[in-house]
Design a protein around this nucleic acid. Sequence first.
DNA 1: ATTAAACTGAACCATATGGTTCAGTATATA
DNA 2: TATATACTGAACCATATGGTTCAGTTTAAT
Lengths: 126, 126
Amino acid sequence: MVQFNTARLDAAFAALSDPTRRGVLEHLGRKDASITELADRFRMTLTGMKKHVGVLEQAELVETEKIGRMRICRLGPRRLEDEAAWIERFGRIWDARFDALDDVVEDLKRKEQAHGRRKGKRIRPR
Amino acid sequence: MVQFNTARLDAAFAALSDPTRRGVLEHLGRKDASITELADRFRMTLTGMKKHVGVLEQAELVETEKIGRMRICRLGPRRLEDEAAWIERFGRIWDARFDALDDVVEDLKRKEQAHGRRKGKRIRPR
DNA sequence: ATTAAACTGAACCATATGGTTCAGTATATA
DNA sequence: TATATACTGAACCATATGGTTCAGTTTAAT
């Protein structure tokens, strides 16, 4: 099984937990931008936006470069592969859990039929 | 394009940003557990663990039921589909972004050949 | 009927987060 | 050279987070 870098996952998921930062990522997906442009678009002070960009940089999701008097921001090299992988693995665990539960249900059904009894069934929760 | 529930994404990503909570999710994937069991396993007070479970419940990733004097915790109905979808979409945007960049590079290459010049190339970052 | 186990809630603590304002510095532009 | 633009850093603020302790309540076991 793959081993995850905990601190990196922490940072990336935390970075993604804010709507402004997700918005910045989507924006940078379309077009590089300066701090001023991002601050305008997300109606926030320069300083506030700079903090968000800082969080995204820490998580390595964005990289920035100072050009003249402005700092341009662009998407970083990470494509959220680890985060996708973690979630995918969780999905498999989740499936296994509820498949196992289905097996139990199946097993109960068979016993019911064998003994001619009847009980409430719990099926895979929605 | 799919519309995401912002508050839900916020809550889920925030829930995933803590290693203890990710651990709890993995644990519950294998086996339901009481607060005490989880607190023991993650070396934390009952109260501390209860807070984590509360966060996971808020994000609808875990559900709990009080049985007798203990509260059992199990995986909730959500499989992190929306979070996976958001990340996947980001991946596509990311690809498009760097594919566009590759086009620029290709374009530059053609011009270089045409003019017989030579310049540093920026290729798709690692 | 006691005692132990399992949880719950309030209060506290240190640190982080998401924002702001204000006072700079550095770079472009007129 | 003077002025405007773009950012930067420090300080502040309110609220959230991740933990703790302590004092209960409810339920189970002896």
